[in-house]
Amino acid sequence: RYRTTFTSYQLEELERAFQKTHYPDVFTREELAMRLDLTEARVQVWFQNRRAKWRK
Rank of each mutant, 00 (worst) to 15 (best):
R3T: 15
R16K: 06
Q19T: 07
E31N: 13
R42K: 08
F47Q: 02
L11V: 08
K20L: 05
V43W: 00
R29Y: 11
Q48S: 15
H22W: 07
R42A: 10
E31Q: 10
F18S: 03
T21L: 07
A52C: 06
E12C: 07
E12T: 11
E13W: 04
A52N: 15
A17C: 09
R29S: 08
L36E: 01
R35I: 03
R16M: 08
R50M: 07
H22E: 07
V45N: 12
N49I: 03
L36Q: 00
E12V: 06
Y2I: 14
T5K: 05
T28Y: 15
Q48K: 15
R50Q: 10
L38S: 08
T4S: 07
Q44K: 13
R50L: 00
D25R: 02
E30M: 03
A41R: 05
R35E: 05
Q10W: 00
H22Y: 07
T4F: 04
T21P: 02
V26I: 10
R3W: 13
Q19S: 13
K20H: 08
R29H: 08
Q10H: 04
T4E: 14
R51C: 07
L14P: 00
F47K: 00
T21S: 07
E31R: 12
T39K: 07
D25I: 03
R51N: 11
E15C: 01
A17Q: 11
Q19N: 08
D37F: 07
H22P: 12
L36R: 01
T5L: 07
R1N: 15
V26N: 14
M34C: 09
Q10I: 03
S8G: 13
D25C: 09
L11S: 09
L32I: 10
R50W: 02
E12L: 05
T28M: 12
T21I: 06
A33E: 01
T28C: 11
A33I: 05
F18E: 00
T39D: 10
Y9M: 07
H22L: 11
R29I: 09
L38W: 02
M34V: 11
V26W: 07
R55F: 09
Y9T: 06
T28S: 14
Y9W: 05
F6R: 02
K56E: 03
F47R: 00
E30D: 12
L14F: 03
Y23C: 07
P24I: 05
T5C: 11
K53G: 13
E40M: 15
K56H: 02
E13R: 03
R51H: 07
V43C: 03
E13Y: 02
E12Y: 03
T21E: 13
W46N: 01
R51F: 08
R42Y: 03
E31V: 09
K20D: 07
E31P: 01
F47H: 01
W46A: 00
T21R: 04
L14S: 00
R42I: 14
A17I: 10
Q48R: 10
L14H: 01
R51T: 09
Y23N: 13
L36T: 08
Q19C: 10
F27G: 13
L32E: 00
Q44H: 11
D25L: 02
Q44L: 12
T39Y: 04
Y23K: 04
R35W: 04
D25G: 09
K20N: 05
Q48T: 11
E31L: 13
N49F: 05
E15G: 02
S8L: 06
R55E: 10
T7R: 04
V43L: 10
W46Q: 00
T39V: 12
E31T: 14
A52K: 08
K56D: 07
S8T: 11
Q10G: 01
K20Q: 14
R51Q: 13
D37Q: 14
R3L: 13
W46P: 00
A33P: 00
M34D: 12
L32F: 02
Q48L: 09
S8I: 03
L32C: 02
A52W: 04
V26L: 10
L11R: 07
W54N: 12
K20R: 09
E15R: 02
Q44P: 00
Q44V: 12
R50D: 01
V26D: 10
F27Q: 13
Q44S: 10
R42N: 15
Y9V: 13
T4P: 09
Q10V: 03
R55T: 10
R16Y: 15
V43G: 00
W54E: 15
E30R: 12
Q44T: 15
E40H: 08
E12H: 06
Y23E: 13
R3G: 03
F6D: 06
F47T: 03
Q44F: 15
R51S: 04
E15A: 02
R16N: 05
P24C: 06
Q10K: 02
F47A: 01
K53Y: 11
R1V: 05
R1G: 11
T5E: 13
D37M: 05
T28Q: 10
E40P: 10
Q10M: 14
V45G: 09
M34K: 15
P24D: 05
F6M: 13
M34F: 03
K56A: 11
T5S: 12
P24T: 02
T28G: 06
A41C: 10
L38Y: 04
E40A: 07
T21Y: 14
E12N: 08
R55N: 13
Q10Y: 02
F18C: 01
A17P: 00
L14K: 00
E40L: 06
Q10P: 00
D25Y: 04
F27N: 05
T39L: 10
Y2F: 03
F18G: 01
F47P: 01
Y23F: 05
Y9K: 14
Y23R: 11
V26P: 11
T5V: 09
W46D: 00
L14Y: 01
T39M: 05
T5G: 10
E30T: 12
A17L: 11
V43N: 01
T7W: 04
F27T: 14
T21V: 09
F27H: 14
F47N: 00
L11N: 06
A52S: 09
F6W: 04
T7F: 04
R3M: 15
A17S: 13
Y9C: 13
W54L: 10
Y9G: 15
E12P: 02
A41E: 10
D25M: 05
W54F: 13
T39C: 08
A52Q: 09
T7N: 10
N49M: 05
V45T: 08
L14V: 01
Q48P: 02
Y9I: 09
M34P: 03
K56R: 06
Q10F: 02
P24W: 02
N49K: 06
A33K: 10
D37S: 14
Y9F: 15
L38F: 01
T4N: 15
Q48A: 10
Q10A: 03
R35N: 12
L36I: 12
F18L: 00
V26G: 12
T28L: 11
L32M: 05
F6Y: 13
A17R: 03
R29G: 04
T21N: 10
R50I: 01
Y23H: 06
R42V: 15
E31K: 11
T4Y: 04
Y2Q: 13
Q48F: 03
N49D: 14
R55Q: 07
W46R: 01
R51I: 13
V43D: 00
H22K: 05
T5Y: 13
E30G: 11
Q19F: 07
F18D: 01
V26R: 07
R35M: 06
A17Y: 11
Y23L: 06
Y9Q: 15
V45C: 13
F6T: 06
T28I: 03
E40W: 05
R16I: 05
T39H: 08
S8K: 08
K56P: 10
F27W: 03
A41G: 13
L11A: 08
F6V: 08
E30V: 05
L14Q: 00
R55W: 05
K53N: 08
A52L: 08
R29P: 01
T7A: 05
W46F: 04
Q44N: 15
Y2H: 13
A17V: 14
E12M: 06
R55V: 11
A52M: 12
P24V: 07
R51L: 12
R35Y: 06
T7C: 06
E30W: 12
